[in-house]
């Protein structure tokens, strides 16, 4: 995909990507002549497609650690199989970092965002009852369910996840 500044008839350059929000990644491109910017918002499926290709917006200057894609995105794995000192760490990407050979791995940006969703965000509190209920959900869909409930809570401006919130989220999912 290439971007053209219609005003200057000039190829735009990648500037930065933003951590996915609700599964949607944003990439910002800039015209080198007029410095006009555009934002490309990718829907969750487009974001996921890029993740699955294991490529990085803004370029990739580092050699990827072994099995980076599998280790970043395999949902339910055997303990210890996906961890080593080679796990990717970066959290954001900019064009300047890329040009300087810095870290701007797209995959890691997305992975980080999704991993952040897995851990308890600071703005949301799960009650013990809600945690118990979450733990009773089959393990292979647990992280997905948790992310969905948290997204539902954020959309509704709910800070504490209770059993009632889980029921409401469930109704919202049409389950």
């Amino acid at each position: 995909m290439k971007f053209l500044c219609l005003e200057c008839n000039t190829a735009m350059k990648f500037k930065e990507s933003k951590t996915p929000e609700g599964g949607s990644l944003t990439a910002i491109f800039e015209c080198p002549d007029c410095f006009g910017e555009i934002a490309m918002h990718m829907n969750p499926w487009e974001t996921q497609m890029l993740k699955s290709l294991d490529v990085q917006l803004g370029g990739k200057s580092e050699t990827a650690p072994p099995m980076q894609m599998v280790r970043s995105f395999l949902s339910d794995h055997k303990e210890g199989t996906l961890s080593s000192s080679h796990t990717p760490q970066p959290t954001s990407s900019t064009a300047s970092e890329s040009e300087e050979g810095g870290k701007c791995p797209f995959t890691s940006v997305v992975a980080d965002a999704f991993q952040a969703q897995e851990s308890e965000p600071a703005d949301l509190v799960w009650t013990e009852e809600a945690k118990d209920r979450l733990n009773r959900i089959p393990s292979f869909v647990q992280s997905m369910a948790k992310a969905g409930i948290e997204e539902f809570a954020r959309e509704k401006g709910i800070a504490k996840i209770t059993g009632e919130v889980m029921d409401a989220a469930r109704g919202n999912f049409g389950m």
Binding site: T47, Q48, F73, L74, S75, D76, A111, M144
Partner: peptide
């Protein structure tokens, strides 16, 4: 198979939605 947690666990990739 070397990466999967147990016999019942299918291969599922992390995603915002399945």
């Amino acid at each position: 198979d070397l990466f999967l947690k147990d016999d019942e666990t299918p291969v599922l990739w992390e995603a915002q939605t399945q």
